[in-house]
Write a protein that binds this DNA or RNA. Structure first.
Lengths: 303, 303
DNA sequence: AATTAAATTGAATTAAATTCATATCATGAT
DNA sequence: ATCATGATATGAATTTAATTCAATTTAATT
């Protein structure tokens, strides 16, 4: 079969007219080229060159393959340039910050999937708790925030991930365990157990308790399992995304109740600088998160 | 370097999604394909496929090469079809007839040149003398006539070759040897030595002697060298194309004189059926005749 | 936990391309 | 005519590359 290497040889022959010169240009010996073109002639059983005393002249068939060479070599060079560009897109760094502590639950398997698809992208989790995770991007310490809708003043590009319901978490024998849903007043003078974040970042407080001027105590814990222990031992109530509770509810360690009749819903978004969010691997990370979460987490809605 | 064979493999992979299936389609083992695509990935240092449990998925870079494959394979297939067509044009048969006996002088080297350029074309000379050579084409016994302008009634396509001068041939000591040129009356009651063809095909007779009602004897000989011998031994005069005489004149065996003040000129044409004359090798034969003759024959003019 | 259906790997093999040394061929000069 | 020159062709030896073979690995499914 004809190969690109032959086409390159043809081009070189046409440009130099002589086998020996052409051979140099394609880093072969004159003999190699002679063998090579002869092999093509034999393959197609057609004369491609007229051998003269001054070098080679293309026959019409040779000219035809030369035309093919022009097309193919041009297309190949173009593809190779594109490949170089794609190589840049294929590698990079993505330092992820989570606004939402519970998200660790699903992020680990998602990161595994991502790493398999994008082995050249270095994926890191920025450790620790930050009062304003989006600011880490401005400071150059992170690239990709998973959390609520960032305020417009951050000038970050964001993509919605999904909606999820926040359930109140009560010990199974709590006095309110028969109510179909809780209302803000049910939290009056209760202890609220939360992750250690500012009050305004807790949806329940911001959306319901603060507007209704409900008074409550706060106690914090860093890990979901610690919060569960505190709730189960009746030290207070919590409000967590439904998916984070499932395991505990199934084992009747705690119970979950909707908050307000229509439930308390929150949204998760991915945010980052526009140029980062445009990277194909960032776009793909968003896709992977949405796909994996909608499959594995109960009770969420893609947005 | 990437080669067409790789592009074919990519195409097969994209169409079957699985290495093992694709391997069959390109007549390789699954392992060979695995090695092959890996080599391309390493050459460009970029991941082309995402390996999943169900087969291979193209990465954007892989997709790009797939697009290249479409272009290249399409162009290659097209070129190969054209090559098949050209192969038909490249081979054929050309049975040549000469109206003009002297033309043998230059035809042999021309045929050598032609055979080198068109090895697939079978070149034959139709032997014998024919009163109407163009008719041989109609009868399917010849393809290509070299001679004067064929009459329009033959419905043949013709291409002009060149003009040449017909010189009178005299023995060196002939009484007329001092005249700068001969006139028709000089042939009165002389013996004219010619090839064995009808009178109306002899330019001198048709153009000059018959119109002037000159009386002359005729004697024929088949070979140019025989005519020369007869002239040299004073058995008569001849009239031949200048190029045919050169050797004899140089050796002072005979002398050549223009006929009439402006000379007697004749033309040579190639004629054949339109479809034969259109064949690339027929076109090229015309070119070779014109080039070779204008270089080697003195005193002719291309037309 | 075992099975299956894929791809990968590395060594061995086979095939193909390339080189080396030399031959051939056509042309132009002596 | 013969010789030198500048070109391509040829064939055997070599080198390089592609392919196979025989395990391995991997991940999903039963």
């Amino acid at each position: 079969m004809i190969e690109i290497r032959h086409l390159k040889s043809f081009k070189a022959i046409s440009e130099s007219g002589k086998l020996a010169l052409a051979a140099e240009r394609v880093h072969l010996t004159q003999s190699a080229l002679s063998h090579q073109i002869r092999a093509v002639e034999e393959y197609y059983d057609i004369t491609l060159f007229q051998r003269t005393a001054h070098g080679l002249r293309f026959t019409p068939a040779g000219e035809r393959l030369l035309k093919l060479a022009d097309i193919v070599l041009e297309a190949t060079a173009h593809a190779e340039r594109d490949l170089e560009r794609l190589k840049l897109d294929q590698s990079g760094e993505l330092r992820i910050v989570l606004e939402c502590h519970t998200c660790f639950d699903w992020l680990t398997p998602v990161m595994d999937l991502f790493r398999r698809a994008w082995p050249e992208v270095e994926l890191d989790l920025v450790a620790g708790f930050h009062s304003d995770p989006w600011n880490l991007i401005k400071e150059g310490k992170a690239d990709f925030v998973i959390g609520g809708l960032p305020s417009a003043s951050k000038h970050l590009q964001h993509t919605p991930l999904f909606k999820f319901e926040i359930l109140a978490v009560l010990p199974p024998d709590h006095p309110l365990h028969n109510k179909p849903y809780l209302v803000p007043e049910d939290f009056n003078h209760q202890t609220l157990i939360t992750y250690p974040v500012p009050e305004e970042r807790i949806d329940l407080v911001r959306e319901l308790l603060a507007p209704a001027h409900i008074k409550f105590e706060r106690r914090t814990a860093e890990l979901t399992v610690a919060i569960m222990q505190l709730v189960a031992s009746r030290r207070g109530l919590a409000a967590l995304p439904s998916w984070g509770l499932q395991n505990y509810i199934e084992h009747e360690y705690v119970i979950g109740k909707p908050i307000t009749k229509k439930g308390l819903w929150s949204e998760l978004h991915a945010a980052g600088k526009a140029e980062v969010m445009a990277k194909p691997y960032a776009v793909d990370l968003v896709r992977i998160i949405r796909e994996a979460c909608s499959e594995k987490l109960d009770g969420i809605k893609l947005i």
